[in-house]
Write a protein that binds this DNA or RNA. Structure first.
Lengths: 236, 236
DNA sequence: GCATATTTGTCCGTATGTATA
DNA sequence: CTATACATACGGACAAATATG
């Protein structure tokens, strides 16, 4: 089990991080850590030493603990009493569970998109073009991020803040699973045209067909991910 | 704007509260506060003084703050920078939003219930009988709690922990709206037979019909609640 | 609009309990 | 089994922001 306990290496993780300071320190720390986790820069299972992170971020342990509790509540880290905080390790069951949530929420949101938000589709389109641009430069992590934005934008079509928050959190958790596998390209490239197709259908007002396409995508993506993930378990 | 700043009155709120101590102090404090909020014993808009609650609960301010951050993350309280923590005041839009979430998640969960969890239906039945018992003694707050358990049990049929957590949190938020209205009886009594009917359909394996019944219930309940809620706004 | 009191935000030091080498 | 490291939790301190008269 790895453990990040050197303040200097923690500080290095946050090099170049601006702090626009609109909210409290605790929330900014939580944001910074959340980005680290979503970007896959902390391996699942790693222990996050309170002292090292407090010193590395130049905040008190109290402040850091507030942030860690939030992330634990979001499921990005797990909190073991008297043992510390560890980067969440997703099981294959977790992935199945996450995809069931996605299926339920994303499809319902797209189906409810007909009447609402005419301008919201432009954000879907934006995410598609961003994914294509990232793919051209070979930035597959960027493609993953753009893909996350794509699905967030899809769900935003329902115009419901709570649903947005739910899917954002769920997709953030899912990224923990993606990053343990190196060939991210193989997981994202095949779905670029699918995303384009979903976007085109939405722009044409054919929301039900878009929802069907999305449903098919979610199932194949889940199966592919599960296969790769269980294969990792046996080899490791 | 009311504000709870006397430690003694805070302590009184927690009289008779056991602390089985399996988790951290912060989480136990969060649990205690969450119960208070769900039971409607704290009026929406009330400020929760850090010092008063820390003293009233016999914990340090740091520990209390951890608990308050969790509750803010759950939406039961709102956190205003440098101003404090207030019991959440739901708007009519919030209620619409919550019912949309319920519609999406609860119905999908019931529809997915067919294959899973044969024993889970017994917990649905249990919640129904508990609601009936509470109604007989005129304990309408108890009916509300049993009703919450009923819907939690419905969603549990899908066998997905994430979905359970989502609906639990959503229903907890909704209770903030119920408690601002005195005649809780009128809001729960009409739905007791509906719950019974849904339960019977599930026991008979007719899950799709149960889902349809649930959908109809959610819409009428939402409309009734919104009407009463907006009426309150205009009179207050 | 101003001066004052209150409250939050944040940090530090420390004592205690728990887990691990 | 002992020693060490670490998390837990507390209390005090002070600056900054906010509320109050």
């Amino acid at each position: 089990m790895t453990t990040l306990d050197r303040p200097e290496s923690v500080a290095a993780l946050f090099a170049g991080t601006n702090k626009p300071s609109l909210s409290s320190t605790g929330e900014r720390v939580a944001d910074a850590l959340r980005n680290l986790l979503i970007e896959g820069r902390l391996d699942p299972g790693t222990r996050l030493s309170e002292e090292a992170f407090a010193q590395g971020l130049n905040v008190s342990r109290n402040t850091l603990r507030e942030a860690l509790r939030l992330l634990a509540h979001e499921g990005l880290v797990v909190h073991q009493l008297n043992r510390g905080v560890f980067v969440r390790e997703l099981t294959a069951d977790d992935i199945v569970s996450i995809y069931q949530v996605r299926e339920i929420i994303e499809i319902a949101a797209v189906r409810n998109a007909s009447t609402h938000s005419p301008g919201g589709i432009s954000r879907v389109r934006l995410a598609v073009t961003q994914a294509l641009e990232a793919a051209e430069t070979g930035d597959w992590s960027g493609v993953g991020t753009a893909n996350m934005h794509f699905h967030n934008a899809l769900v935003a079509l329902a115009g419901n803040q709570r649903i947005n928050a739910m899917i954002r959190q769920t997709l953030a958790e899912l990224r923990l699973a993606f990053h343990v596998m190196k060939p991210i390209k193989e997981f994202h490239e095949p779905y670029l045209p699918v995303n384009q197709e979903i976007c085109r259908l939405l722009e044409a007002g054919r929301t039900d067909e878009a929802a069907d396409e999305l449903a098919a995508y979610l199932r194949t993506a889940r199966d592919q991910l599960i296969n790769a993930y269980t294969a990792l378990d046996t080899t490791a």
